[in-house]
Computed example of a mutant assay.
Amino acid sequence: MRDFRWPPPPDGGPRTYGPGPSAPRSGRPTLPEPETELVATPHGVRLERLVTGTGTPTTVFAHGLASGIAVTRPLGSAVDGRKVFFQFRGHGRSDAPKGPWTYADLARDLRAISDLSGATRALGVSLGAGALTRLVADSPDRFDRLVFFLPAVLDLPRPAAVKSRLATLAAAVEAGDVSAVADAISTEIPPNLRGTPAIWAYLRQRIDQLMRDGLAADLASLADEVAIADPTRLGRVTARTLVIGSAGDELHPVAVAERLAAVLPNATLHVYDRPGVVWTERSDLRARISEFLNAPE
């Protein structure tokens, strides 16, 4: 049995021990992360922000749990106008005020970045989708277009698997065990794609960020929180909305996407037929998001 080694080779690897092919494998190296800024917010929490693109409209992108700017950026690659990416509290270089935290706190972070950036549109991934849900429940006319990608929580807490995964990842980061961090992150990736050059590049990027910035202990409290107690409040949301779910994803149950789309008045639901769509349906996903956000009024 041959296995992979960590870190991967610079040519994109992976390499394997023992007999077998050993020719260099192609794979683009990970690009350096762009320079970000720390932004002061009205609620006193400094948040890390990156702004790309020019013109109008402005779209804000909210990442998932233990994720960040680097993972959400590809979702906006074909979106017109200015694109604002940021790190929630406890992620990246953003502040980590004393917890426990709730989705109301995350919605406050998202609202501050949106207001400071003049964003009229928003996309939320997983945890970010929960924060966006809470924000528009409180302010139903804040945005004119919304995208909820892999929403994970509505009015019921997230599955126990989320708590277990986060605890495993946090322990590995705290111990400085790079291999264990790689193993924890790789559970997000379809098994048949693990070990490809693209995945190694992705792992490098995620590991570099996590080992540099760490994970705030109070993130664990979010696993028991709900976005809103009463989903019918979303019936007042005025924005055109796209909800994207994925069958078979235990961390992002498709039932959450279906219920969310059902209570939003102007929602379109699309469900992919298998998990791991960021890797297996990347082109279609980017096109679906950009076509929705770029479509004329």
Rank of each mutant, 00 (worst) to 15 (best):
P275S: 07
V173P: 05
M1C: 14
H91K: 07
R240Y: 02
D138W: 00
A184T: 10
Y202T: 15
G13P: 00
S246D: 06
N192D: 03
A62K: 06
E174G: 04
R212I: 10
F148V: 05
L65S: 04
I228Y: 02
I113A: 08
Y272V: 09
V263C: 07
R108M: 14
F148G: 07
R286E: 14
A171N: 10
P140A: 10
L38N: 11
H252I: 02
L215D: 03
R165N: 03
W200F: 12
D155P: 08
L203H: 00
L193C: 08
A171E: 14
A198S: 13
V45G: 09
L234P: 02
A247D: 15
W101R: 09
D80Q: 15
V263N: 06
V178Y: 11
E35A: 14
P34R: 08
P34C: 09
L47P: 11
V263H: 05
L166D: 01
A112Y: 02
L166V: 01
V178H: 14
D141L: 09
D80H: 14
V45Q: 07
R93T: 03
H270Y: 06
A201V: 04
V79P: 12
P265I: 05
A171K: 11
V45C: 11
Y17P: 12
A295S: 07
V243M: 12
D95Y: 02
G55L: 11
R49L: 12
T30Y: 00
A129S: 01
V125D: 04
A170S: 10
A131S: 00
Y202D: 15
A255L: 01
R142L: 14
F149R: 04
G118F: 08
T52E: 15
G76H: 09
T16C: 00
A104K: 07
L242H: 04
R82I: 11
G27R: 03
T52V: 14
A261L: 10
G248V: 12
N294Q: 04
A198G: 15
E33F: 12
L234M: 03
F143W: 08
V45S: 09
L242C: 03
Y202H: 15
Q209S: 13
